[in-house]
Design a protein around this nucleic acid. Structure first.
Length: 269
DNA sequence: GCTGCATGATGAA
DNA sequence: TCATCCTGCAGCA
């Protein structure tokens, strides 16, 4: 379930277990053999998250760069355990007390600090990063000013905004009442500002909860977020043909750049 | 058991 | 715009 909140949460929780420890590094699957052996036996300084990217900094100055893509998954386990390591484990990190298991990532590679910087530089502002050199809304506006692609396509572009995925895209545009087909350069600065603050609010919530929840208590009653069913947590994602929770109009769907989006034509103009 | 789809991204055409 | 890579599971026979 990797959107930005998953990545930042993984960094936070993994730092608790592995930061500052000397680690055994292996690739049971074999596809990260040379990389994993390069850092075997080193101390992990810290794990950093940027957008959907993770960087594991080791004592030697090497970094392991991980991007989960659509299918990548982490599993952490306390040791000792009887659980066998699965065959598809790309990267296995082990301390004396914990085990980290990575499967199915799009990227898992050893890079240097210059390469880390290059990746960070090309990313847009990340709603889960607290300090920004440049005002994030202005930065987004700058990167959108000459573009006529639909805003629904633009906010999945990680150079514009780093960390949103297909669920948050649909939900955030719904919450700020913006039609996903609005040309990017026609989106007002007020709407961009709302887009940013809703991104910060919702990804922060998601990072804490470990799942994407966008519905407000007023719309779902008094149930706690974790007790809500999959679709109770969301307003429009994958709700094609259902009634909009707020106005009763029918939720529509369309394809934007090869990804499905869902929206309410009354709430979003 | 098989098929297709999915919260992602890239590189070729 | 398409094909490709990575994995898991829902839906269907």
């Amino acid at each position: 379930m990797p959107e930005g909140h998953t990545i930042h949460r993984a960094a936070r929780l993994q730092n608790k277990r592995f930061k500052g420890k000397v680690l055994r590094s292996e690739s049971p699957q074999g596809r990260f053999d040379s990389g994993s052996s390069q850092i075997d036996g080193q101390e992990l300084r810290k794990i950093y998250a940027n957008g959907k990217h993770l960087f594991y900094e080791f004592d030697s100055g090497d970094f392991v760069h991980v991007h989960l893509g659509l299918f990548g998954k982490f599993r952490t386990l306390s040791l000792p355990t009887d659980d066998p390591v699965s065959e598809n484990c790309r990267w296995l990190l082990t301390s004396d007390t914990d085990r980290l298991h990575l499967a199915g990532p799009t990227v898992c590679e050893v890079i240097d600090s210059d390469q880390v910087d290059a990746i960070r530089r090309r990313l847009g502002p990340d709603p889960l990063v607290k300090r920004h050199r440049e005002d994030p809304v202005e930065k987004m506006a700058k990167r959108l000013s000459r573009r006529t692609i639909p805003i629904g396509a633009a906010i999945l572009d990680q150079k514009v905004l780093a960390g949103l995925g297909n669920v948050y895209r649909a939900e955030i545009l719904y919450l700020i009442g913006l039609d996903p087909f609005t040309p990017s350069n026609q989106v007002s600065i007020q709407d961009l500002s709302a887009l940013w603050s809703e991104s910060v609010r919702l990804l922060t919530l998601g990072e804490r909860a470990g799942r994407i929840v966008t519905t407000e208590p007023a719309d779902v009653g008094k149930q706690r977020a974790r007790d809500l069913g999959r679709y109770e947590r969301l307003y429009c994602y994958k709700r094609h043909g259902e009634q909009c929770r707020r106005c009763g109009d029918t939720i529509r769907t369309a394809d934007i750049d090869g990804r499905n989006i869902w929206w309410c034509p009354t709430e979003q103009t």
